[in-house]
Simulated scan of single mutants.
Amino acid sequence: MIKVREITEVLEAFAPLALQESYDNAGLLVGDPDMNVSGVLITLDVTSEVLEEAIQHNLNMIVAHHPFIFSGLKKINGKNDIENCLITAIKNDIAIYASHTNTDAAANGLNQKFCDLLNLKNCRTLSPMNDALVKLVTFVPSDYAEIVRNAIFEAGAGHIGNYDCCSYNLEGEGTFRALEGTNPFVGLKGELHFEKEVRIETVLPSFMQHKVVAAMIRSHPYEEVAYDIYPLKNSWKGAGIGMIGELEEPLGEVDFFRKLKETLNISVIRHTEFLSKPVKKVALCGGAGSFLIDDAIRATADVFITGEIKYHDFFKAENRIILADTGHFESEQFVKEVFGELLQKNFSKFAVRLSEVNTNPIKYL
């Protein structure tokens, strides 16, 4: 049987919890990590109707995009839907996991799926994460450099854009003297030793530092491993909010909006005035992404699509860009497919169901 822990490990390898915003509450919200899983129900939101669907289909784990618990609960007595959901989940041994802003920020997460649905090409992150990278430097005997380097790469370091196994290597000579109580790999106690070494430098996300350093130490032949960690100011294009890409062929504004409505299966889009020019470059952010309007303008996007734009934010267009508000639910509804495809790929003989409950609280007349 597959355990909850195995499911969450796959989800967190795809969208690490370290990528979530500070206000978020992603992760395992309810349930025992070692519980056996009969099947998974995937949903955008957790509601009483979604829990009932899980119970009816004997699925004892729910994977949601939005956490149903954001703030602390002082009492759990069923006075609202959040408390009712929690009570129902516990009574029926249903685990609930949420992957929210970390999936928004993941390289192949929600926004990449949005780009794929619109058939955008040359896609890249609109607002890459800052202060998220560190540089690891270590010093290895020449004959062991390949072993240590490979261990570091296998632990997740050395990714730059679409390249992996990236490092810089410089040959040199290190010195050390082993004192009493040591067991040196090379050299003699009490004598200054000179050793041909390779200085290995590579980059990694800061949240992976513990894992990578542990792998380096395990593979390193020295009793005491010398290494340095440097914080970097580089933007990390491997994660961030929003994306921007290009249509294969430009479309007229009306034709593009028809394509957008058809793609999202919606009947209405709030937008700023058309600019009477073709749409080629498209920026987007599922959910509430109006904070990225300036980024989209700087990136010279023709259109910026998101799920929530306030009235006064529409004025920021200033005839430089078309702003399009599709609705929050509408811009994130396909996240169920993201999770479904991920779990089916990793657990091919496992029951995965996309919820049929429409959890959108907003109705249109």
Results as ranks from 00 to 15, higher is better:
224 E>K: 15
338 V>F: 10
4 V>M: 03
1 M>W: 01
255 D>P: 05
121 K>H: 08
173 E>V: 14
165 C>H: 15
76 I>N: 05
305 I>Y: 09
311 Y>K: 05
272 T>W: 03
247 L>Y: 01
313 D>L: 01
44 L>G: 08
347 F>Q: 10
291 F>D: 15
174 G>D: 11
167 S>F: 10
220 H>W: 13
31 G>I: 07
97 Y>K: 05
199 R>V: 07
136 L>W: 08
24 D>T: 13
206 S>H: 08
242 G>M: 04
275 L>C: 05
82 I>M: 15
266 I>V: 13
70 F>W: 14
132 A>E: 08
286 G>L: 10
95 A>L: 02
182 T>C: 11
73 L>Y: 09
348 S>R: 15
47 T>S: 14
277 K>S: 13
23 Y>R: 09
151 A>C: 04
215 A>F: 10
80 N>L: 04
296 A>D: 11
92 N>D: 03
224 E>N: 14
180 E>D: 14
211 K>P: 00
215 A>H: 03
315 F>C: 04
350 F>S: 13
146 E>G: 11
84 N>G: 00
360 N>T: 08
158 G>V: 11
288 A>T: 01
181 G>M: 09
294 D>R: 11
362 I>R: 00
264 L>A: 04
55 I>M: 09
190 G>C: 14
182 T>N: 08
201 E>C: 13
262 E>V: 03
201 E>I: 06
251 L>R: 13
172 G>N: 05
127 S>I: 15
233 K>D: 12
305 I>C: 14
161 G>A: 11
329 F>V: 00
295 D>C: 11
229 I>Q: 14
